[in-house]
Design a protein around this nucleic acid. Sequence first.
DNA 1: GGGCTAACCGGATAGTCAATCCGGTTCTGT
DNA 2: ACAGAACCGGATTGACTATCCGGTTAGCCC
Lengths: 186, 186
Amino acid sequence: MTPAQRADAARNRERLLDTARLAVDAGDLSLQLNEVARQAGVGVGTAYRHFRTRRALVEALADPTFTALLDDARTAARHPDAGRGVAHFLRALLERQLADPAFFEVVSTGPEHDAAPRTTGHREEFAELARTVVERARDAGAVRAGLTDDDLHHLVCGTAFALRISGDPQGRLDAYLKVILDGIRA
Amino acid sequence: MTPAQRADAARNRERLLDTARLAVDAGDLSLQLNEVARQAGVGVGTAYRHFRTRRALVEALADPTFTALLDDARTAARHPDAGRGVAHFLRALLERQLADPAFFEVVSTGPEHDAAPRTTGHREEFAELARTVVERARDAGAVRAGLTDDDLHHLVCGTAFALRISGDPQGRLDAYLKVILDGIRA
DNA sequence: GGGCTAACCGGATAGTCAATCCGGTTCTGT
DNA sequence: ACAGAACCGGATTGACTATCCGGTTAGCCC
């Protein structure tokens, strides 16, 4: 029986992802599939076979970061102090969005119509963990009633946006995060 | 002496603006100049002569809103209670961004390389007023030290972003704004 | 009213990038 | 070594931004 994917296909996929990751880390967010394919040394057709749209490539890039965030969230959900738990959770969500623009694009937009099952799974697990973290914090009085886990999610994405346009994300991170953390208290 | 602009040119410019405004109000943010030109009943060349780029059209659309906001800001700067003044200022900035996506695009991005002098003037006047409003509020203890007028500007743009992705901007506006207002206090 | 000219018009066209198509090639299991 | 499914990759289509330039018109002067 033939494997799910041929060896050359897997190799090309890795090449595309590596090339794209390099571009993003170098600050080029455009991720033009034609250009990525050229730099990766594969044909455009190959690029589009592995990533049906530009968005699919972005989601694939964000995948490791998403996985790491789920770990952060699980830790936060187990934190003995629910107030500190939610603070850690929001900080992790914020920092990872700043560190990985692809991840920012994924979490700050709604689920795509034909997202990869992996990304959809991450979203669901994330939502579940966020609910736990925020409910615990609300019960402990660290988050005021009337704010849902979705609200906090959106507010953190908004803060990431604010930091991006500030021109000095690392320098203002603590200040902006403090505004949110103080603001969500009862 | 011939006027600065011919009558037909002025008419076409208005037609283009009206058409674009209609499209934006109908929820179509794409503002494709070809399409706007077609719907306005003028040639593409005419559209691009009046608005050198898509961005120039967006700035022209945002102009009335920007003017209105400057009025809000002047009123806020004169408010007897500096704390209420800054609250009114931030609320106005937020509400106008939600009401006019073109305005959101203009205030939540840096100044363009070749922006219209009018827009540049608005930006400068806005910056001046924001400084006044925030300094007064800080002196009155309504805004904690360490947060500049730029910081508040960025945070409000971030909140507009958060409300946009929330799916229910009008419904969550007060809640999100309260988070920011509470968070910026000392 | 009629002529002059700068200003203006608008569609053809170039350039960019996403996305698709399909004839040729290569890998894998037998 | 062979068969053929899976894969490759560049030519091509389609959408949109932006420019170019020959033809037209508004406004001024007589």
